[in-house]
Structure formats: C-alpha cells, structure tokens
Design a protein around this nucleic acid. Structure first.
Lengths: 104, 104
DNA sequence: TAGCGATTGTGCAATTTAGCTAAACGGCAA
DNA sequence: TTGCCGTTTAGCTAAATTGCACAATCGCTA
C-alpha cells in the first residue's frame, strides 16, 4: 500500500469520529448494543439524522448492525480500543487548557 | 461541563486529525521536532497549505511551536498518546476488511 | 537599507458535510 | 389488505473545509 493511501484510510476513521453526535453514539455503545430509537433519544436529533450518522460509523467499520428484533435494529461497537481514544483526547484537552492559560 | 459540550470538544480533536496530510505530520513529529520545510517536503504540498494544517493542529492542542532557528520554525508533538490511536485505527481497518470480505 | 529565504494570513472557487422534509421500505397486527 | 411503527434513503440548502495564488511578515546578510 502506498504511503499516501495508508494515511487516507486512517483519516477516514478519524473523520467518521469527528462529530459530537457520533462520539455520543460510540460512547453509548460501549455499554453494549442499543436500538436506534434509544440512540435517537440520547443524541436528541431526528431519526433520519441519527440513521445517517450510524451509516457513517458503519461504513468506517466502527459499528455494525447487531441484530433485529422485528423492525427494531440494534447496533454494536465493532472496535473496543476506541475507549483508549477518549483517555488520550482528555489529555489533549488538558494540554490545550494549559497552553491557553500560559497565554495570559 | 454540559454533556453536549464535552463531546463537541472531543470532536474538535478528531476533526483536527481527520485529514491525511495532518496525520502524516503527526506521524512524522513522533520522531521528534521538525522544521516546517521538512514537513512541506514530506507532505508534498505548498508551504501555505502545510502552514494551514499546522495551525489547525496547533489550535487543537496537538502540536506546538517548539523553537525558532532564524526564520525556521520547529514544531513538536504536544501529546504523546496519539501513538495509541494508530494501533487502534489499524485494528478498525482490519475489522473493516474482515467485514467487507464477509460480504462476498 | 535592500534583498532573500522561511513562514503565515487572505480571498476565492470547488468540494464535502449536516440536518431537515418528504418519501420509501420492512415487519407486524388488526 | 390496510395501517402503523421503526428505520433508511433521497433531495435540498446552508455552512464548513480544502488547496491554490498572492500578499504580508520576520530574521538574516550583503
């Protein structure tokens, strides 16, 4: 694989995570599979919008359809290590805060 | 901090990383501080473009100006844990590949 | 001071993305 | 079949992002 290509693949993953609603969804799914309706309620957006976010995460390989119960669709987190992302991001935020404070 | 707000902050970090050129830069800086000129060469874009990418990373708190040597500016990685991101992303990519293969 | 190399800021056109409304679809019960 | 519920898709507009050309700035040296 060409170098440029590798970074493009990686960037797609990050892009898929680069939205607050999608991060909320990923975070919620860490506790286990959840139906779309519950995610809709959690995010506080329309069904159509949440469904779209889910398709973005699905195409990135971050979540997957878990099972269907009648018309209800359950999604699950496909990748567990995402958890580590958040602890790192927290560190970035702390760093940023420190940098801002240093400006004064 | 409100929940929504927390996820917005996190999303900004991911958004800052959601571009192949910026990932190349971050990856390169893991080896130590580097001057902008070297990053320009690495990325293969114009100075103006790379400078813009650096400012995005800087505002997100991911990189910072390290030192100046004359007119030459060195940047460094502010957050080390980014490294863990990549191993996880690799896992996501593998997962995705597996999912695609299963479709056939 | 003039000029050069390194870096950053600005304006612009093309592309991408978010979320809304409306419509379509599948499963299920009356 | 008809109708309803949960979910997805399509079409649209507004806003954000990208990369380029060009101008501005900074440090150094002739």
């Amino acid at each position: 694989m060409k170098k440029r290509e590798l970074y493009e693949f990686r960037a797609r993953i990050f892009k898929a995570l680069a939205h607050p609603s999608r991060l909320m969804i990923v975070d919620a799914l860490q506790a286990g599979p959840k139906p779309v309706g519950e995610l809709v309620e959690l995010v506080g957006a329309q069904y159509a919008t949440v469904s779209r976010h889910l398709s973005v995460l699905r195409e990135a390989g971050i979540v997957a359809e878990d099972r269907k119960d009648g018309a209800t669709v359950f999604y699950r987190l496909e990748v567990q290590c995402i958890n580590g992302f958040f602890t790192c991001v927290t560190e970035v935020l702390a760093e940023r805060k420190k940098a801002l404070a240093a400006l004064r």
